[in-house]
């Protein structure tokens, strides 16, 4: 999923300073799962914003709504009945949702309430780690199911650099050396011979090197 974290409170407060009627929009997808911008977080942020304005003797009108999927125009359409009453929209979804709202509602002042972080997997409750950079040309088939693009700090494709210590990456002991993991797994699977195949320089076009990416499925695009 796409992971996100709430922005610093003061940054959000600064964005909203000129406004008094806020449409606060959460999303039921990824940001709900990573507890950054689901219905609960919408409620908590609204409450914090209320506390802040009450202290300043102001009232702030916050309409809370959490959409099924903010990156989908079909669901963003639900905001139509609320948008005119709002001075600003504060989105708690990933950047995709923020932009879908901004695209649909040309006049709306839209602000992000979260920082979109990475495509990751859940390691345990409350812990997420980066697992994919969307390079558009998946290499997991030759690296035993462990991604060197997203998990090696240097995205090295031909093995570990010289900085590995105790199986950890040179950037710090909290990061496993991806190539150590790949090597161990290749061995476990009995296919360690694959390591020696030279991996050519990667074509980064599918990764975004050819400009913003788009998928068009002719069979679906009616």
């Amino acid at each position: 999923m796409i992971t996100a974290e709430q922005k610093p409170m003061q940054e959000i407060i600064q964005y909203l300073a000129p406004y008094s009627k806020i449409l606060l929009v959460g999303c039921n997808e990824c940001v709900t799962v990573c507890a950054a911008g689901g219905r609960k977080e919408v409620g908590l942020l609204a409450s914090a914003l209320h506390l802040n304005s009450l202290k300043q003797g102001k009232t702030i009108d916050i309409k809370e709504i959490t959409l099924e999927r903010q990156c989908d125009p079909e669901y963003v359409e639900e905001l139509t009945s609320y948008i005119d009453a709002a001075d600003a929209v504060l989105s708690m979804s990933c950047g995709c949702g923020v932009q879908t709202i901004a695209t649909r509602f040309k006049q709306a002042h839209v602000y992000p309430a979260v920082n979109t972080k990475f495509m990751g997997a859940s390691l345990s409750q409350g812990v997420w780690a980066e697992r994919c950079q969307g390079c558009g040309d998946c290499m997991l088939g030759i690296t035993a199911g462990i991604c060197p693009v997203s998990r090696c700090s240097k995205s090295l494709l031909n093995g570990p650099c010289g900085g590995t210590s105790n199986g950890q990456c040179e950037i710090g002991p909290e990061t496993d050396c991806a190539w150590r993991l790949i090597w161990e797994r290749l061995k476990e699977l009995g296919i360690e011979g694959r390591y020696e195949a030279l991996v050519d320089a990667k074509d980064w076009r599918p990764a975004g090197g050819a400009g913003p990416r788009k998928i068009i499925r002719e069979d679906l695009a009616l």
């Binding site: 700090s153 240097k154 494709l157 030279l198 320089a201 990667k202």
Partner: peptide
């Protein structure tokens, strides 16, 4: 060479390039 990670230097905020790795540079 692949080079030390920017984290160690005086520009830790820099984006590392790593378009290719050291093996691929040898080949190039």
């Amino acid at each position: 060479l692949s080079g030390d990670h920017p984290k160690f230097g005086d520009h830790p905020m820099a984006k590392a390039v790593y378009d290719i790795d050291s093996v691929q540079l040898i080949k190039a």
